[in-house]
Amino acid sequence: MKKTAMTISYELWGKLYLNITNKCPCACTFCLRQNDDGAYGSDPLWLEHQPDYDEVIENLKTRDLSSYKEIIFCGYGEPTSELDILLKTAEYIRSVCDTPIRLNTNGLANLIHGRKTEQDFKGLIDTVSISLNASDSKAYMAITRPKWTDKDCFAEMLSFAETMKKYVPNVILTVVDVIGEEEIAKSQAVADSIGVTLRVRPLET
C-alpha cells in the first residue's frame, strides 16, 4: 500500500531535493517508485495532493537554502510536468541564494506541453541531467515506457538535450551502470554525437 505525505523537499548527501509533483508520463522499468514509497530512507514521496507554488515556497522557507551544495528538482514525478511551478520556484531560489540548481528530467517536456520549452530554463538552471536510459530508440521505449507509443520519444529526448546546451551551462545524459560495458560505450557515442557529457551512475544513486 502506498504511504502518502507532503514531502515537498528532502535532504540527501548535503543536497536538497525538491519533490514538486508525482505526475510522470513514463513508467521506467527501474524507477524507485515502482517498489517503494521513498528514496534512500526519505519520508514517503507520494504526495497527498499536487502542491501549488505557494505550498512549495512555504516549505522552502523552512530550509536554509544557502547551506546546501546543490538544490535538485527530483522526486517521485517528472518535474517538468509542473513546469510553471518549477520555473517560478527556481526564480525564488535564485532570488534568495547562490546555491547551484539542477533539474533531473526525462527530457520529454516538449511532448508534455506540446511546445518547445528549452528557452524557459535560461538563467534559472545550472545543470540539467537527462535520463538517456538506452542507446537506441527501441531499447529506450522498452525501458522507459512513455505514454506516447506513436512518437519517437528517444529522438525527442535527444533533441531536447542538444537544444538545452544553448540555455543551460551543463547538460548531462545519464545511464545506470547495470546496462553493461557494451551498452555504456554505445551510450557514450550517443552523448558525443550531440556534444554533451555522459554520466554513468550506480543504480542506487
Rank of each mutant, 00 (worst) to 15 (best):
M1N: 08
M1D: 03
M1S: 09
K2Q: 05
K3T: 10
A5V: 04
A5M: 00
I8Q: 03
E11K: 14
L12M: 02
W13V: 09
G14K: 04
G14L: 10
L16P: 09
N19I: 02
N19A: 15
I20M: 07
I20R: 07
I20G: 04
K23R: 13
C24E: 07
A27R: 14
T29Y: 13
T29N: 09
T29F: 13
F30I: 15
F30V: 11
F30K: 13
L32Q: 11
R33A: 08
R33M: 11
Q34T: 15
N35T: 13
D36S: 12
D37K: 00
G38T: 08
A39V: 11
Y40H: 12
Y40D: 13
G41H: 15
S42M: 11
P44T: 10
P44F: 07
L45M: 15
L47P: 08
L47V: 05
P51V: 03
P51Q: 04
D52R: 11
D54V: 01
V56W: 00
I57R: 06
I57Q: 00
N59F: 07
N59Y: 00
L60V: 01
K61V: 04
K61H: 05
R63N: 02
D64N: 08
D64I: 03
L65S: 00
S66C: 06
I71F: 05
C74K: 08
G75F: 04
Y76S: 14
Y76A: 15
E78Y: 04
T80S: 12
L83P: 10
D84T: 14
L86C: 15
T89E: 11
A90E: 12
A90K: 03
I93E: 02
S95A: 07
S95F: 10
S95L: 06
V96M: 01
C97Y: 06
P100N: 11
I101F: 00
A109G: 10
A109F: 00
G114D: 01
G114S: 10
G114Q: 08
G114I: 04
G114V: 04
R115W: 03
R115A: 08
R115H: 10
Q119S: 14
T127W: 00
T127L: 00
V128M: 07
S129G: 04
S129D: 09
S129C: 15
L132H: 01
D136M: 06
D136T: 00
D136I: 04
K138S: 09
K138C: 02
Y140V: 06
A142F: 11
I143W: 06
I143Y: 06
K147R: 13
W148D: 02
T149P: 02
C153G: 04
C153T: 01
C153F: 07
F154H: 09
A155P: 10
A155F: 03
E156W: 09
E156H: 11
L158N: 01
T163F: 05
T163H: 13
M164C: 03
M164W: 14
K165I: 03
K165T: 01
K166Q: 14
Y167D: 03
Y167H: 09
Y167V: 02
V168C: 01
V171P: 03
V171S: 01
I172R: 05
I172A: 05
L173H: 08
V175H: 04
V178E: 14
I179F: 02
I179M: 12
E182V: 12
E182K: 14
E183W: 09
E183K: 12
I184K: 11
I184W: 15
A185N: 14
A185Y: 11
Q188I: 12
D192I: 08
I194S: 02
G195N: 15
G195F: 15
R199E: 15
R199Q: 15
V200I: 14
P202M: 08
